[in-house]
């Protein structure tokens, strides 16, 4: 083999390896089998080009490009200024529906950011390649810390201003707790007393009997008795006083005789 050929082969090998590396980095994918979607955010929480896209936790694509689009307005009129172009493999495309939601999440020991797509319901139609979708802005930890810091400042300020009242409140709370504790101890002692126990047992018995009585009063037999009494009273109503008096006198005399 000539020297030129050997040197040429080395140069070709280098070029091929550069292409292989570009392919490994996902920069070129000649056999790509994915569709694109535009996800709109106002805050992307540190996601980067090349970050993975997951559907139900499985990697199905990557963030292809991040663009600033200050003029974009969604169909609802909301201004959304950050456009993230993602690729989703065709095998997972049917799982992404119009009601799917697009979250930015954290994973791994070093907090790798990824875009999670929740699978949509089958009643909703699929997206068309290149559709624009509103993503769910991740919570801003910096704002949360800032608000927490402000809140802590206000609490400290309030405590400083009302130092006397707070001390008094704490003293009152302390007294209340002590009294409550004493009450509880007293209640415990009372519960252990024999007389109190008997009283309690009787109360339980009365309660049981009342429950039994009430149960019987609600029975069919009780209803019949009530009906009989009602009828008796109805029949007794026209009977006048002197005849009743006479009846009871006669009955009384008869009772005395026997």
């Amino acid at each position: 083999m000539k020297v030129e050929t050997k040197v040429g082969l080395l140069a070709v090998l280098s070029l091929v390896l550069i292409l292989v590396f570009a392919s490994m980095m996902g920069m070129i994918s000649p056999f790509s089998n994915a569709n694109e979607l535009n996800i709109m955010y106002n805050y992307a929480g540190g996601i980067e080009e090349g970050s993975p896209i997951r559907v139900m936790g499985i990697k199905v694509g990557k963030v292809k490009k991040i663009l600033f689009d200050p003029t974009y307005k969604s169909a609802s009129g909301e201004e959304v200024k950050l456009r993230i172009i993602i690729t989703v493999d065709k095998k997972a495309w049917s799982s992404v529906r119009q009601d799917s939601r697009f979250f930015i999440n954290l994973a791994g020991v070093i907090g790798e950011k990824f875009l999670e797509i929740s699978p949509g319901s089958t009643e909703k139609p699929e997206f068309k390649p290149g559709d624009y979708v509103r993503g769910e802005d991740p919570p801003r930890i910096d704002q949360l810390i800032s608000q927490g810091y402000g809140l802590a400042g206000k609490v400290i300020e309030m405590l400083n201003k009302n130092e006397g009242s707070v001390t008094n409140m704490i003293t009152q709370l302390d007294k209340l707790t002590t009294n409550f504790n004493k009450t509880l101890v007293l209640f415990d002692k009372t519960a252990q007393n024999a007389e109190f126990s008997r009283l309690l047992k009787n109360a339980i018995k009365i309660s049981d009997d009342t429950a039994y009585l009430m149960g019987n009063l609600r029975s069919k037999k009780a209803e019949d008795t009530y009906e009989l009494v009602h009828r008796l009273l109805f029949r007794l109503e026209p009977v006048d006083g002197p005849r009743i008096k006479k009846f009871f006198q006669e009955e009384g005399i008869r009772a005395k005789i026997f």
Partner: peptide
């Protein structure tokens, strides 16, 4: 220069 360039590419990728 050329040889070093080619070798660096090959070495890096082989290493990877």
């Amino acid at each position: 220069i050329l040889g070093s360039l080619f070798l660096v590419i090959v070495a890096n990728l082989t290493c990877l």
